[in-house]
Design a protein around this nucleic acid. Structure first.
Lengths: 340, 340
DNA sequence: TTGAAAGCGCTAACAG
DNA sequence: CTGTTAGCGCTTTCAA
């Protein structure tokens, strides 16, 4: 009985063949007699042998595993991962996920380090979720989902954030709102910038002047949005609606409103962005802009596969967003009837 | 300029030393002059060199990475992972997560295969979340969280499920309910069995006869619980309360009640188990039994670390559960005042 | 203080 | 068809 894990050598000895032969049957290579093959397979079975991914990839420079690098495991990345997992099924590739664990300190360094320590030996390609930077010369096929601005020539999948934001703000405007605040998502993220632009554009198109004091910078946490919203809502000239750069932030706004005894949507309308599962379950259910997170994950993985096969995927795939009206939006208090 | 990633050889050449020396400075070994050290570090910097985890671990049999194997990325495992990520911070270990992607087909095989292909070469130890089976002889330090029944001599962390279930059912009984249905979680999971026992025990202690037709087998999906609950609630002698084996199932019950126009908690009380984030956000907010998922993740990782350091962690750590009463439970319709 | 050499477990020519 | 020979990139004796 093997004390530690069996190696290819153990199998070779037991089967009375060379390690090369074992390697061949392992990899379904040509040139092994059926008899030998059977014998070897039997020994493999008996010993419970499993080849070491590490050793084989070190030699063959192919691992059969795709890496996904995420900054943290939160609702957005988790949804995305579900799509990634779906798309990888049946491709023969396996998936490993590296999470930076939310530490935001050394994002750039973390991504670089992982990419280069793993690349070529541990993973064949990588999917980066909201990466801060990507070296084009990492030598590894890479696809990014919603990267920070300035991330270079990497194939990217992202949502049509600007349009989504306009949809959200147009909806609020159509309800009669004029004082519409914006609490942004993570600064630096491409999507954050585009959603902000959509907000400004929609306001401008409606001839509503932009009030910078209603336009604040948040991140993707409920806590921060909560604090920000509180400050906004305690003002005498408080907004009648808040558009949050992502759902978690919107949930924080909902909380802040509850704290202050403000009825949503009676006294305050709130719109989010993303449509994470949590948005459906809030009280009231959140009106939000949906970006198809799972589909984005699937799409990104497909592009990675294409890259792996030597193809050239589109440099940027933009997926549609759509407004999902639930119960956190209504006309402003004492508003004129909305224009029809 | 290096076409592909720099290797230790490139560094050695550039610095005019041997690879052995580079390896020494890389690993902070004794016996390198300060001058050489500086020179080597400089070259490493210049070349952007990162040692390959794979190659180094192949030789040293130590990787510095801990693996977490999860069947899927759902609310429970995700919460747990947050705790794991917290506990790993500052230990010098890195974390990689392998997800089977929810495919339930070949769970046992998947776990074995991964454990043995990665063990010793890719990960130093593994945390298994709801594993179906663990070979004691995998040769790798392993800790399990809420394993299936029959998983052998592996250190385990789990919640006090039976007590939690009793808490839930006692609460329902105290409110005056007598017809209390149970929709279980994944069959086979240890926690599922214990929660079921708690349900039976609580009923028995109160002298309420057990009605097998109210005791059905679910899993951890909203869909299945929805269907099951629908069937239960359409019966003329429908239960006045449902205790679900996990929150996702409870959410499915809530949905089913909504479909049928049943008011919760007015006409039906619902209790879940886990207290996932989604439970707070449902309408009405879910009364549920909390198991400290993040803490469980932290605990499990600490045990793994202890194992790694040659220690002997407790064979089983059982963490407390507690009832969180929110708004999905109330006395049954037309019930007598609850006994005080 | 340094480097040469041996090998981790495996695959990839190539020769037999 | 099968085995021999060379490594992949790195760490680790052990001599120099």
């Amino acid at each position: 009985m093997p004390r530690s894990r069996a190696t290819i050598r153990d199998v070779a000895e037991q089967a009375g063949v060379s390690v090369a032969t074992v390697s061949k049957v392992l990899n379904d290579r040509y040139g092994v007699s059926v008899a030998t093959q059977g014998r070897v397979r039997q020994v493999i079975e008996d010993l419970g042998y499993q080849s070491s991914i590490v050793a084989s990839s070190l030699r063959s420079h192919r691992t059969g595993v795709l890496g996904v690098l995420v900054a943290d495991l939160e609702p957005f990345s988790t949804e995305l991962l579900k799509g990634v997992a779906t798309a990888v099924r049946g491709t023969g590739y396996e998936l490993v996920i590296y999470s930076a664990g939310g530490r935001s300190g050394d994002r750039v360094g973390w991504e670089r380090r992982y990419l280069s320590r793993l690349g070529g030996t541990l993973i064949d390609a990588a999917l980066l979720v909201t990466p801060t930077a990507v070296d084009a010369d990492s030598g590894l096929p890479v696809v990014a989902v919603d990267p920070h601005t300035g991330v270079g020539a990497v194939p990217t999948v992202r949502a049509d954030d600007e349009r989504g934001a306009r949809l959200a703000v147009d909806h609020l405007l159509a309800l009669g709102h004029r004082r519409i605040a914006f609490i942004s998502g993570w600064p630096g993220l491409g999507s954050t910038g585009r959603r902000h632009e959509g907000y400004r554009a929609s306001l401008a198109a409606a001839g509503v002047p932009h009030d910078p004091s209603l336009d604040v910078e948040g991140d993707a946490t409920e806590e921060r949005a909560h604090a920000l919203a509180r400050a906004l809502l305690e003002r005498p000239d408080r907004p009648t609606a808040v558009f949050a750069g992502n759902d978690m932030a919107a949930l924080g706004v909902l909380d802040a409103a509850r704290d202050l005894g403000l009825d949503v949507p009676g006294q305050l309308s709130v719109v989010g962005f993303d449509n994470v599962p949590e948005a459906v379950m809030s009280t009231p259910a959140l009106t939000t802009v949906e970006q198809p997170m799972q589909a984005m994950g699937e799409q990104a993985l497909r592009m990675l596969l294409e890259l792996l096969q030597g193809g050239t995927p589109a440099p940027q795939v933009v997926v549609d967003t759509r407004l999902v009206v639930r119960h956190s939006t209504a006309p402003p208090p004492a508003a004129p009837a909305p224009p029809r």
